[in-house]
């Protein structure tokens, strides 16, 4: 799938089969909006979403409905995302009845099988429960089972663990990871938890104020961020090994996307900002293979991150050597 030139888009994003793309950024940066726009749950105002040679952004809703077999989404809040008036089994059956033409019996058996796959204990007995009889984690499992019923090619997971407690979070992420490996489904993982994307994604997009600020392979992004915003986000992650005082935070709040200031939207909060940042919109700079950054000083920031990384490396090496000596 290729996403081109959205209203706020600069470069193309490619998602390959079986790959996981992380979409990170603070709240209100347009991550979920992008996810919903890809699936036309929010109407995009422009741009292209290319999938199997079709432009999803310009299909009619009717044509789009057929594509939904391949493109599924799970949402942030499993407590409200399932219909409270309908049995779990029935909600799952809708998928296969609709897209695969299953009979009621086939669909029911498939629903039970899917519930087993996502780890609902005693799935057959619990299939006829209503959503309120399930816990939050169980409901998210049901959502996943539903989304994966027709073996979609792309699953968009919009902060799938935000509403869940920590132990359940890990289980759900592990489940998505495992099912992704089993089925070869591509995943777009929307989250503000950098720890989550680090362990699960191949590529990462960093979004800010509705724009892509940085795009890179996961390892590369964590090692050598080429954008001050990404650096700020990475510094904000608590590091249990470091002896730091107060936790770092990026000053200020994300701007209102409807009323963006001229120049770089991040400039008012940026440590590196100069006059040009407040005047001119920054360029999308190619830093490396598959690594882009939206910044006037992208190369400088990137070079600095890389040298810091090398310094860390050699320091680690010297410590190791000293210990060996």
């Amino acid at each position: 799938m290729t996403i081109l030139d959205f209203r706020f888009w600069i470069e193309t994003i490619d998602i390959y089969p079986g790959e996981t793309l992380g979409l990170v950024g603070e709240s209100g940066c347009g991550k979920s909006t992008l996810g919903r726009a890809i699936l036309r749950l929010t109407e995009p105002t422009g741009g292209q979403v290319l999938f199997r040679g079709k432009d999803l952004a310009h299909l009619s809703q009717r044509e789009m409905r057929d594509e939904r077999k391949h493109l599924q989404m799970i949402f942030q809040d499993p407590m409200t995302s399932l219909n409270p008036f309908m049995r779990i089994s029935k909600q799952l059956m809708e998928m296969t009845e609709l897209h695969l033409g299953y009979t009621k019996d086939q669909a029911y058996e498939h629903a039970v099988k899917m519930l087993e796959t996502v780890g609902i204990p005693d799935a057959r007995a619990r299939a006829d429960s209503y959503p309120h009889e399930f816990s939050g984690g169980m409901r998210q499992r049901v959502m996943i089972a539903m989304a994966l019923s027709c073996e979609p090619e792309l699953l968009i997971a919009d902060e799938p663990t935000t509403a869940l407690d920590v132990t359940i979070q890990a289980q759900i992420l592990e489940l998505i990871k495992k099912l992704k490996q089993d089925t070869g489904t591509s995943v777009i993982l929307i989250t503000h938890d950098l720890g989550v994307v680090a362990g699960m994604t191949d590529h990462i997009l960093v979004m800010y104020a509705g724009k892509i600020f940085e795009q890179a392979q996961t390892r590369e992004l964590f090692a050598c961020p080429g954008n001050p915003y990404t650096k700020g986000l990475l510094r904000s992650v608590p590091d249990p090994t470091a002896e730091q005082g107060a936790l770092y935070q990026i000053p200020g709040l994300p701007p209102d996307v409807a009323h963006l200031p001229p120049g770089c939207p991040f400039a008012p909060r940026c440590e590196r900002a100069e006059e040009i940042c407040r005047q001119e919109f920054p360029p999308f700079v190619k830093l490396n293979e598959e690594h882009y950054s939206l910044c006037h000083f992208a190369e400088e920031v990137y070079a600095k991150s890389c040298s810091e990384r090398d310094a860390r490396k050699s320091m680690n090496q010297t410590t190791v050597q000293e210990e060996n000596a």
């Binding site: 699936l39 809703q61 599924q72 309908m86 998928m95 539903m146």
Partner: peptide, 25 residues
């Protein structure tokens, strides 16, 4: 509501969404 968005995301037609998921509530 969120669950109607889920129903749409499934690929149900608007008529199906209304009759199966909206009317009751």
């Amino acid at each position: 509501s969120d669950y109607v968005r889920t129903a749409r995301a499934k690929g149900l037609s608007e008529v199906q969404v209304v009759f199966r998921h909206v009317l009751r509530g």
